Computed example of a mutant assay.
Amino acid sequence: MDTLTSLRVFCSVAESKSFTAAAQRLNLSPAMASKHVLHLESRTGVRLLNRTSRRVSLTESGALYLAQASEMLGSLDEVEAAISNIAVTPRGTLRLSAPVWAATPFFVNLLAEYQQRYPDVSLSMDLSGRIANLVDEGFDLALRAMTRDRLDAGLVARPLMEVEFLLLGSPDYLSRAGRPGSTADLNGHALLRYSGINTGDQLTLDGPHGQQRVSFRTTMLSENESLLHLAALRGMGLAFLPTRMVQEDLVAGRLEAVLPENVKFFHTLYAVYASRKYLSAKVRTFIDFLASRVSASADA
Rank of each mutant, 00 (worst) to 15 (best):
K35I: 05
L76S: 06
Y114N: 10
R284Y: 06
D149F: 02
L26G: 15
L58C: 09
L58D: 09
L255T: 02
L166T: 08
D120A: 15
V214A: 07
E41M: 10
L191M: 04
I86C: 03
M236Y: 12
L48N: 10
H267W: 14
L221N: 15
D140Q: 10
D126I: 11
D149C: 13
S6W: 01
S215Q: 15
D77G: 01
A184K: 10
A14F: 08
S297L: 08
L166K: 02
Y65D: 09
R254S: 13
G235S: 01
G188P: 03
S53A: 15
S297E: 05
V108G: 05
M236C: 09
S182E: 07
S57Q: 11
C11H: 00
L64H: 07
V246R: 06
Y194I: 00
K277G: 12
N27M: 14
L241M: 04
G154V: 09
E164N: 11
L160Q: 01
R234T: 07
S195H: 08
M32G: 00
R95P: 09
T204N: 05
G62W: 14
E15C: 03
S170V: 00
K282Y: 01
L227M: 04
Q116H: 08
L123S: 06
L123F: 12
F10I: 13
V79T: 11
L233I: 11
A69M: 11
L123T: 03
L250C: 11
V135I: 13
Y273L: 04
D172M: 13
A231W: 01
R150K: 14
F240G: 00
H209L: 12
F19G: 02
N262G: 03
E137P: 02
V214E: 12
R213G: 00
S53C: 08
P242L: 14
L168D: 05
V135Y: 13
G178C: 02
W101K: 11
M236A: 07
V294R: 07
N224Q: 12
T219K: 01
A102V: 08
R193S: 03
S42N: 15
F286L: 00
G154I: 10
G210L: 13
L96I: 14
G74C: 04
S175P: 02
Y270Q: 12
G207E: 13
S297P: 02
Q24W: 08
V163N: 10
V56L: 15
I287S: 08
E248T: 12
F106D: 15
